[in-house]
Nucleic acid binder design. Structure first.
Lengths: 240, 240
DNA sequence: CAGAGTGTACTGGTCTGACCATGTATTTCA
DNA sequence: TGAAATACATGGTCAGACCAGTACACTCTG
């Protein structure tokens, strides 16, 4: 009779991957903390019993994920970095650009995101952030006289302050990524608007309403307003 | 008199980074498309005029970003991959685990996303997709008897069908990424729920309500329902 | 004794050249 | 015509070497 053994799938794991894995778990277990130094490549190749090429490939992928940084000549060895959402931004950006996405989808996504941000901002905003948003709206008012370009810069600043007030980094990252992608796609038609004066006044009024809802802590209203204003604003794009 | 030249900062760029950059832009410019093959490492080292180590390091970081995949022995060379949210999931996961991003943020983001998806699904769903959603709910009903694990699988399937019905790839990508991350984070506490039967019934009822709103084409209601149900479901996580 | 300059040892970045196991594509054979 | 054996280029890994750069200890000077 044969033994009933619980066999498990065997997949060959490349050497450098196991090195990456070990260092990665050491970091996520807090055995290695930001600011700590890894042993030098030559020491690592002894402890892991692999060649230096393997160690280097492992370090390259750790570096590309933002976990460590190597600097030539530093006798203290590679540095363990503080994890940062910046790497996420890069990934999201690439995904947004790489994927063949219709402009209407991108706009739609942005509208939903912006609405959500306003909702969250209404719930989470601090007094300082409220003040910043008010200042941003005042700046918009002032910039109307300087033309649509200056105005739209101020408009962006207002929305940024809303993102910040949402207290949600994921939201901010996605917002930034979609804004960047949108700019890339429609950059040419920015100031062609013939009725720019009226449009600016309208935008200002809309943002003022949103701010009022956020200020009142009324998340659903803030979100609904933002969405409907944006749908109006982008109407021609979203349903051509 | 000296020339007034516009000097610019000089930072040494590592060789493998320039290789990465070139291949990356080739991919983002669609010169290289998913399924295409890169030249072999030995050919690449000739065209880039660097050693094979450098080429390999470049390939490792491209691989860790999910852009290409190398398989030993394949004479056709490294493959250019389809962009996938999987890498996003991994990154989000790591950031949450390292507490750079709070779990509550992730949950919050997911709730807003899910609400938006329901709203869009109500507006864009086709007849077939509606049918698929109904089938998914029926499947949930049937799976209740088979325990919480099977049920939650069916639940996921229902939500997937909603994402699909939203007709928005970005939404789907972000949804998948956050779902993956959340599953990894809270997977252990899945079937510890003592009141699992009641919970399943409740989920089923909720999803039924959402489906009804989607079916009726009532986007705002669908979104509102989804958000409030999820807030209830994740209540303990989001405000501890 | 303090500070500026010099050394030096070790670091990471890159290169060369080699070996192995593997997957594909061709060739061979029935 | 189909299956089996082979050839060959591939990626994974290794060993050893050289160079430019950095940190740190060590001078030398005032």
């Amino acid at each position: 009779m044969t033994h009933k053994a619980a066999f498990t799938a065997v997949k060959t794991v490349k050497a450098y991957e196991r090195v990456v894995e070990q260092i990665e778990t050491a970091i996520s277990k807090r055995d290695l903390r930001p600011g700590d130094r890894l042993p030098s490549e030559r020491e690592l190749m002894l402890t892991f019993e692999v060649s230096r090429s393997t160690i280097r490939e492992a370090l390259r992928v750790l570096e590309s994920t933002g976990l460590v940084r190597s600097r030539p000549g530093d006798p203290r060895g590679p540095e363990v970095l503080q994890a940062s959402p910046a790497i996420l931004t890069k990934t999201v950006n690439r995904l947004v650009r790489l994927e063949t996405i219709a402009l209407s989808e991108l706009v739609e996504f942005r509208i939903m995101l912006e609405g959500a941000a306003c909702t969250l901002a209404a719930q989470h905003r601090t007094e300082e952030q409220l003040e910043a948003m008010r200042a941003a709206v005042d700046a918009m008012q002032a910039e109307i006289a300087h033309g649509p370009v200056a105005f739209s810069r101020a408009d962006v600043a207002f929305h940024s302050s809303v993102w910040a007030a949402s207290h949600n980094q994921l939201m901010q990252i996605c917002g930034e990524a979609t804004r960047g992608a949108l700019i890339d796609m429609v950059t040419d038609g920015l100031d062609r608007a013939p009725d720019s004066a009226a449009r600016m006044e309208l935008s200002l009024a809309h943002d003022g309403e949103i701010l009022a809802a956020i200020s009142a802590g009324d998340g659903p209203t803030a979100g609904r307003l933002a969405r409907s204003f944006l749908i109006e604003y982008y109407g021609d794009v979203i349903s051509p």
